[in-house]
């Protein structure tokens, strides 16, 4: 079995936003209204001379117990055997319950107006989306099926994003997760996320 997971190292993310751009082009997200499948938060943390910038990439956590799936009334949200949580835009009626249920703010609206804007932005011929829905990251499932990595991982200049299979013991991602260095976000919510973070806030030296 395969169980996909991502590890993001906050120590090496430089905040170049190349992942956002690569994802937007790959998945045709409505960037004109600042909505992305992955987003890098830029925040100042610390006080006095210890203030520093922290770049925090965020995306769908492809939870093993996804609350967005359990609240979806039409079955538009589904989970593959490899753990990837997908949205079928044809089934989605856009009630937004998934966005309310997601603790990771991974969902955003794609409206009829966005599809019209998308035709202009991405091109009439190239636009893949036909109907509105609540969209989110798919771990680039279409690329994985062709043996490629997700677009954000492929393009990451700081190698902050690592992608792997948790059922493969020799995979570096598995080892980082198993060692406890990489931790999930808000594990107490019981969502069992499959995106892990290597913290940058530990005191150094």
């Amino acid at each position: 079995m395969t169980r996909y997971a991502m590890v993001i190292d906050l120590n090496t993310c430089v905040g170049c936003n190349a992942c956002m751009a690569a994802c937007a082009m790959e998945n045709q997200t409505p960037v004109w209204k600042n909505k992305w499948r992955t987003y890098v938060h830029d925040k100042e943390i610390g006080v006095t001379d210890q203030v520093r910038r922290r770049f925090f990439p965020r995306l769908c956590n492809h939870c093993s117990n996804p609350p967005c799936l359990t609240v979806c009334p039409t079955g538009a949200t589904s989970q593959r055997a490899d753990g990837i949580v997908l949205v079928d835009p044809n089934l989605c009626m856009g009630c937004r319950a998934c966005a309310m249920a997601c603790p990771y703010d991974a969902r955003y609206e794609v409206t009829y107006a966005d599809i019209d804007a998308g035709r202009e932005f991405y091109g009439e011929e190239e636009l893949q989306r036909q109907s509105p829905s609540m969209d989110k990251c798919s771990f680039c499932a279409h690329r994985l099926d062709k043996g490629m990595k997700p677009a954000c991982v492929e393009t990451c200049v700081g190698s902050a994003r690592m992608f792997g299979d948790l059922d493969e013991p020799n995979d570096p991602v598995t080892q980082l997760v198993a060692s406890g260095i990489a931790q999930p976000l808000m594990p107490y919510l019981g969502t069992r996320p499959n995106v892990y973070y290597i913290d940058d806030t530990k005191r150094k030296g």
Binding site: T70, M93, S133
Partner: peptide
């Protein structure tokens, strides 16, 4: 609720009573 849906045609998927067998965990269903 219907007026605020993003994709009005897809509401047909939740009007069918069989939705309770497909999505028994979804309270909107």
């Amino acid at each position: 609720l219907f007026g605020h849906l993003l994709h009005h045609v897809a509401v047909i998927n939740v009007l069918n009573p069989l939705v309770l067998f497909r999505q028994p965990h979804a309270w909107i269903a």
